[in-house]
Computed example of a mutant assay.
Amino acid sequence: MKKDVKYNEHTKELFEQLPKGAFLTVKHEDKIDTMTIGWGTVGYIWQKPIFTVAVRYSRYTHEIISKSQEFTVSIPVNKDLKQALATCGTKSGRDIDKFKECGLTAEAGKVITTPVIGECDLHYECKIVYKQDMEPAQASDDIHKTCYPKGDFHVLYYGQIVACYVKE
């Protein structure tokens, strides 16, 4: 059973798990992909609750999300999904079916057409309201050195949180 919660009700669980990994799932037409993210933030801007995610240009996920208007973020709070997170963070959806490979279930969302990861406990469904290509010249030298030594920058996607729920 899915219980609706406020977008900021489980930020402690979100921010404890995010550095360990969460699933960003995208869908466009018949293509679905999920990838591991370790960066993101939840906040309130433009009079909306927003989940911001970063996707590198080189990722297969970027090919799909750039054509989509939505995404989901699924957080494994009570289940150990380390192996699936590792696979989804190192393998490309161009080469493998991550859902099949990792035993993950693409479960229908409540509001949008992009699925959530059924094995996770906390879910955010988001409609993209803004996207921003990173401006390399605007990043500090420290960020360049630690996060972009090969110049593979991100696009930032700002998703209005249209549903947030936990599995009971």
Results as ranks from 00 to 15, higher is better:
20 K>C: 01
144 H>L: 12
144 H>C: 03
104 L>E: 05
43 G>A: 12
39 W>R: 06
91 K>S: 09
73 V>Q: 01
72 T>E: 10
153 F>T: 07
130 Y>E: 03
48 K>V: 00
33 D>M: 07
91 K>Y: 07
50 I>L: 11
39 W>G: 03
155 V>L: 06
49 P>G: 01
106 A>R: 14
68 S>A: 14
137 A>M: 09
59 R>V: 00
157 Y>T: 08
12 K>L: 14
107 E>C: 04
27 K>P: 04
20 K>I: 09
154 H>P: 03
76 P>Y: 01
128 I>N: 00
25 T>N: 06
16 E>V: 13
93 G>D: 05
48 K>E: 06
108 A>Q: 11
63 E>G: 04
66 S>P: 11
15 F>N: 04
25 T>V: 09
36 T>W: 02
108 A>C: 04
30 D>S: 09
38 G>F: 07
138 Q>Y: 12
105 T>G: 07
21 G>W: 05
143 I>D: 07
37 I>W: 07
9 E>W: 05
114 T>D: 05
94 R>L: 09
101 E>W: 10
123 H>I: 11
37 I>N: 08
76 P>C: 11
63 E>H: 06
112 I>G: 06
133 D>S: 12
59 R>A: 08
153 F>G: 07
97 D>I: 03
165 Y>L: 10
112 I>F: 13
39 W>I: 15
63 E>Q: 15
133 D>G: 05
70 E>I: 05
16 E>G: 02
124 Y>P: 01
57 Y>C: 01
